[in-house]
């Protein structure tokens, strides 16, 4: 399934709302994405950082997985 810009905006909103009391986490997520955009980090690097940042938030991890290319996903502990 192809995700659209609206899906990305909606996901970013979800992250922002979740960490409304701790906006540093939302800003860190934006920083990770900026570093990916500027190619400072690659896809596995993003996966590594995001899995640490969203540890304990399996719904956010699953939402993020939807943006990953085939063959990549962050495992959610059961």
């Amino acid at each position: 399934q192809k995700l659209k810009v609206e899906d990305a905006l909606s996901y970013l909103d979800q992250v922002k709302i979740r960490f409304a009391n701790d906006p540093g986490i939302y800003n860190k997520f934006l920083d990770i994405m900026k570093e990916f955009k500027s190619q400072s980090i690659d896809t596995p690097g993003v996966i590594n950082r995001v899995s640490q940042l969203f540890h304990g938030h399996p719904d956010l991890v699953l939402g993020f997985n939807a943006f990953l290319p085939p063959g990549y996903r962050i495992e959610v502990p059961k």
Binding site: L3, A8, Y11, L30, K34, K37, T43, F67, P69, Y72
Partner: peptide
């Protein structure tokens, strides 16, 4: 680039960050 959807998310995040 091998991760077009992730690039799209990164682009949207960059715009969002610039606006806030």
């Amino acid at each position: 680039l091998p991760a077009p959807q992730l690039v799209m998310l990164a682009n949207v995040a960059a715009v969002t960050a610039a606006e806030s």
